[in-house]
Amino acid sequence: MKALVYTEPGKVEVRDVPVADGKPGAVKIRMHYCGICGTDIGIVGGKHPRAKAPLVLGHEFVGTIEEVREGSGRFKPGDRVVAYPLISCGHCLPCRTGNPHVCDTLKLIGIDQDGCIAEYAWIDEDVLFKLPETMSNTTAALVEPLAVVVRSMHQAHFELLDSAVVTGAGPIGILTAIVLKHSGASRIIISDVDEARLSLCKQFGFETVNAREASIVDYVRQSTNGEGVDIVFECSGVESAAAEMTKLARIGGMICMTGIHKAPRPVDLRDMNFKEQILIGSRVYTKREFEMSVAYAASIAADLEKVITQTVPLTKAEGVFDMIADPTVNTVKVLVDCQA
C-alpha cells in the first residue's frame, strides 16, 4: 500500500509499504482522509523528540472498516470510524487516578507508532468510534482537533455569554472560535498575523485584530472600557501572546493554554496576583471528550467544512509540507485523500 513516510528531517516520501498485520481485537481500516496538524509539521521539521524515521504520519483520520479480527461484535465491515489516537501505559499515577490522557509516558498513533496517512491501517477496536451516517468523511477528519477544543472549553469553565479572546488563528484557534460561537459566547475576538486567515474569521462574524498592524492589548482595552474579557484562549504558542495574555483577561478572568509552547515564556505574574486571574493548561482530551466530539461535529458540520482549505491526493502528498510553509498559499486545514 501507499503511505506518507517521514524519512529524515525536512523530507517525506510516498512509499509502498506493507500493511502491518493486525492482532486479535484489531480492525483493518480503509482510510479516506487524514488531516495534517502542527505536530506533523514539527515531526517533519525534526523538532519532535519522540518521532523517529521512518514513520508513517497521521493521527486525524477517518476510514471504513474492511476486516474485523476476533472483535467484540461492536464493529463490522462497512462501518465508518474515527479513532482516539492516545496510547496510555495504564500504570502511572495519572492512569491510576482516571487521567490517562496525561499519562506520564503518553504516546500517540502517528508519532510513537506508524500512523494513518496511508491506504490502510490496523487499529485496535477499543479506540474506535462509529460515525453518524449523515456525517461526511471530510467533517469526520476534523473530529480529533475538535476534541482538543472541547477539552479546552471544559478546562476554561466556559459559561453562556462569556466574552473571549482567541490568540492565534490556526486550525485550533479558528475551531475554538467556532465552538465559542455555537456555545453562546457574547463576544469573540481573534488575533493573528495572517490576513488570509483573519479574512476567514470575518466570514464567521468574529472580531479580528492583525497583530502585525495593531496591538491586541490596546484593542481589547479600548473595546471593553479597560475591563478585559472573561476568557483568553492562547492557541498560538508564540512568545508575544504569552506576554500579553494577562493584559487581555479581566479581573478574576480565565486564561486557558490550548496551544503548546515549545520553550519557557515570560508571563506577567504580577497581573495574575493583582487581578486574581486563573491560568490553566489543556493538553489533549479524554476519551469521553473525543466521543462527545463525534456527535458535536455532526451538529456544526457546515462551519467545520469551511476550515478545510485544501485536499491533497496521497500520491502527490510529498509536497504537502512545502505547500503549508509557503506564505503565498493560504492554508488553514489541509487533508490528505488517502485513496487518491
Rank of each mutant, 00 (worst) to 15 (best):
T167I: 15
T167S: 15
G168W: 02
G168S: 02
G168R: 00
A169G: 06
A169N: 02
A169V: 02
A169I: 01
A169C: 15
G170D: 11
P171C: 11
I172G: 04
I172K: 11
I172Q: 06
G173L: 06
G173F: 03
G173N: 04
G173C: 07
G173H: 06
I174Y: 03
I174E: 11
L175C: 09
L175I: 10
L175Y: 03
L175D: 10
T176V: 09
T176A: 07
A177S: 14
A177H: 08
L180S: 06
L180K: 09
L180Y: 12
K181N: 12
H182G: 07
H182Q: 09
H182S: 08
H182M: 08
H182N: 13
S183W: 09
S183L: 08
G184N: 12
G184D: 09
G184R: 08
G184Q: 05
A185H: 13
S186N: 13
R187E: 13
R187A: 10
R187P: 13
I189M: 12
I189K: 08
I189P: 03
I189V: 15
I190D: 00
I190A: 01
S191Q: 03
S191F: 01
S191Y: 01
D192E: 04
V193K: 10
V193Y: 02
V193S: 11
V193C: 11
V193A: 14
D194T: 05
D194A: 15
A196S: 15
L198C: 07
L198I: 00
L198Y: 01
S199P: 06
S199E: 14
L200E: 09
L200C: 05
L200I: 10
C201Q: 06
F204V: 02
G205K: 12
G205H: 13
F206S: 04
E207N: 08
E207W: 06
E207H: 04
E207R: 09
T208G: 03
T208E: 03
V209Q: 10
V209G: 12
V209H: 07
N210V: 00
R212Y: 05
R212D: 05
E213W: 02
E213H: 07
E213F: 02
A214Q: 09
A214T: 00
A214Y: 01
S215V: 00
S215K: 02
S215T: 00
I216C: 04
V217A: 07
D218W: 01
D218F: 01
D218H: 02
D218K: 07
Y219P: 09
Y219L: 04
Y219K: 12
V220R: 14
V220T: 07
R221H: 12
R221V: 03
R221S: 13
R221F: 06
Q222A: 15
S223G: 06
S223W: 00
T224I: 05
T224K: 13
T224C: 03
N225K: 14
N225W: 01
G226W: 03
G226Q: 11
G226E: 12
G226K: 10
E227L: 14
E227G: 02
G228C: 10
G228Y: 03
G228T: 01
V229Q: 14
V229W: 12
D230A: 14
V232T: 05
V232H: 13
V232C: 11
F233I: 05
F233T: 03
F233N: 06
E234N: 08
E234W: 12
C235F: 05
S236L: 04
G237H: 05
G237L: 07
V238C: 12
V238A: 15
